[in-house]
Design a protein around this nucleic acid. Structure first.
Length: 523
RNA sequence: GGGCCGUUAGCUCAGCUGGUAGAGCAGCAGACUCUUAAUCUGCGGGUCGAAGGUUCGAUCCCUUCACGGCUCACCA
């Protein structure tokens, strides 16, 4: 039993129970429009709900975690990162589920964007029940609720007008219609009979028609109304919202009024989450250039647990940056430290300990490890992988590490980082022993020869410290400044002037390899 | 114009339901005749944006103000 909840996910869970009462089932919802690549900022919506769901379940509650894809939205503009722009151009104003996938792999534009992230979520332990709005509308799930909105048109209008600078026009309706002929939403409603018949005319193709709401599959609610309608339909108890929805007059505000006045349902518990910034991914990052950062991009560098850790460890209403630069090392170190704290291997204040422990628990993709997992510092992994040229099994074997999924995943991320984002100082290639030797002076050659002999005799008895000492001594014995000797050795090993801390590096490279690399210089 | 959020050590930030402040980095000193933001050890009196108020007592509550940022108001 925990003393008091201090983590935001637990606090929110308790708040939901307090405000919604003791229920058999709690509904927690997330929703995103797949009108383009789902980016890491959108991901905050999913993970935020996931963490709250987790907290509720740990309190012994039954929870339904729903995720609504707002894929009956209209295709308004073409994101810069999409191929086949001319083709897409011809589909503007149609529902995104009708627009073809420009990549040609999925049944629609919307589906492509949905799938790109749906396939990744289970890897992060996020497994919601997906609801596809286009499908829901098509199935007629919302017919009655649409009619209710039509009946309450004036109420809705008044609510929306409260915060508008210009009033909605007299002929405004809370629904919009995709023309059955040209599929575009370039339609104007001309009449509603008070029951289920809605007439419209299409300005694009000139189509005039009267639809039956009970049969029609192309009518939908205006987004600010769709939102509260869904709260009512799914009986949503909790849904967070991005900051763009959370100010006075924003969609949460109007949706709350509408759900109460039109649908006779209480709005869900909510909180606001802030945006995610990106750091260290050089140059163009704005969505206008279409260079959005997706979850996949982040997973390329960060293990699943660490992605969860980043979000679980930050209050939702605080903005934070996801880094691709040197900060990556620090983030991995922070996570490892958090893990050590969880397993009591690190002395910290009780308060800190409680805090970190909860964050650690929430960061786990599945069950919490029973004992401290083997930790291999990210930085070290980066060096080893370069020695083994990116071969993960060989690297883990050299480490005598368990070949488990966590370490594999970390190794993959480390290699990805090294090859894509790491600064040049971090990168190296071991030279090939058969390559033409670099040139060394006579003195340098003698020192290298001495080192060769030293290693030949005592490689296995050296540790980093003793070997470092030997290197110094050898330098002096042969009249070299240590710095010069270091440079010489780095050139011989990796053809650079600097590299990883030398003694440890030599030991890591391993006896066989180091001997073969030094051999050409032995006189 | 409305709303929200910030303003805490040089920098980045922690500080839960009030009991006069902390961590990392930087810095300084020392150690190691090393180098991948190098490692180890030691060192943290900063009017907690300003002014009022509530309180025995406020960084943490209330009010007002200043500065900074974000967001809504057109479309989804």
């Amino acid at each position: 039993m925990k003393t008091e909840a201090t983590h935001w996910a637990d606090i929110t869970a308790l708040k939901i129970i307090r405000e919604k009462g003791d229920k058999q089932l709690y509904v927690c919802a997330a929703g995103i429009t797949p009108s383009g690549t789902v980016h890491i900022g959108n991901f905050r919506e999913m993970i935020s709900v996931d963490l709250v769901v987790k907290a509720l379940r740990e309190l012994g509650k039954q929870v339904r975690f729903i995720f609504s894809w707002d894929d009956y939205d209209v295709f308004r503009k073409i994101p810069a990162n999409m191929p086949q722009k001319e083709m897409l151009e011809t589909h503007l104003r149609k529902p995104i589920t009708v627009v073809p996938d420009p990549h040609g792999s999925k049944e629609s534009y919307a589906r492509y964007n949905e799938y790109e992230i749906e396939k990744l979520l289970p890897l992060l332990g996020i497994e919601p029940e997906f609801i596809y709005q286009a499908e829901q509308y098509a199935k007629g799930c919302y017919t009655e609720l649409m009619r209710q909105a039509l009946i309450n048109k004036d109420t809705i209008k008044a609510i929306l007008n409260e915060h508008r600078t210009s009033e909605l026009p007299p002929d405004w309706w809370p629904i919009s219609i995709f023309c059955t002929s040209c599929q575009k939403d370039t339609t104007k409603i001309s009449n509603w009979d008070g029951e289920y018949a809605v007439s419209y005319s299409c300005s694009a193709c000139g189509n005039n028609e009267t639809l039956d709401l009970k049969r029609a599959q192309t009518v939908k609610l205006f987004w600010r109304v769709d939102f509260p309608m869904r709260w009512s339909y799914e009986k949503v108890d909790f849904e967070p919202g991005g900051k763009e929805h959370h100010s006075a007059g924003g969609s949460f505000d109007t949706a709350s009024s509408i759900v109460k006045q039109v649908y006779n349902h209480e709005p869900p518990v909510t909180f606001k989450y802030d945006f995610i910034r990106i750091k260290g991914k050089g140059g163009k990052i704005s969505s206008s250039t279409g260079d959005v950062i997706s979850l996949q991009d982040v997973m390329y560098i960060y293990q699943p647990e660490i992605i969860r850790y980043l979000f679980a460890g930050t209050r939702p209403n605080a903005e934070f940056a996801i880094s691709f630069d040197l900060d990556v090392l620090k983030i991995y170190e922070d996570y490892d430290k958090c893990e050590r704290i969880y397993f009591g291997r690190e002395d910290v204040s009780e308060k800190r300990k409680q805090k970190e422990k909860r964050i650690y628990e929430l960061s786990q993709v599945r069950e919490i490890p029973a004992a401290l997992p083997e930790q291999i510092p990210f930085r070290h992994l980066c060096n080893l992988l370069q020695i083994y040229e990116g071969q993960i099994p060989a690297t883990l074997k050299a480490l005598d590490a368990e070949d488990d999924t966590r370490l594999q995943s970390r190794a993959r991320c480390a290699w990805n980082w090294i090859t894509t984002y790491a600064p040049p100082e971090f990168r190296f290639h071991l030279r090939n022993a058969e390559a033409v030797p670099v040139s060394v002076t006579e003195n340098q050659g003698r020192a290298v020869t001495a080192l060769y002999r030293e290693l030949d005799e005592k490689f296995s008895s050296h540790d980093e410290r003793s070997l470092a000492e030997s290197i110094y001594n050898l330098a002096h014995e042969h009249g070299l400044e240590p710095k010069e000797f270091f440079k010489t050795l780095y050139r011989i090993l990796i053809n650079k002037e600097m590299g990883p801390r030398l003694a440890g590096f030599i030991l890591t490279i391993g006896r066989d390899k180091i001997m073969s690399l030094l051999t050409p210089y032995v006189s």
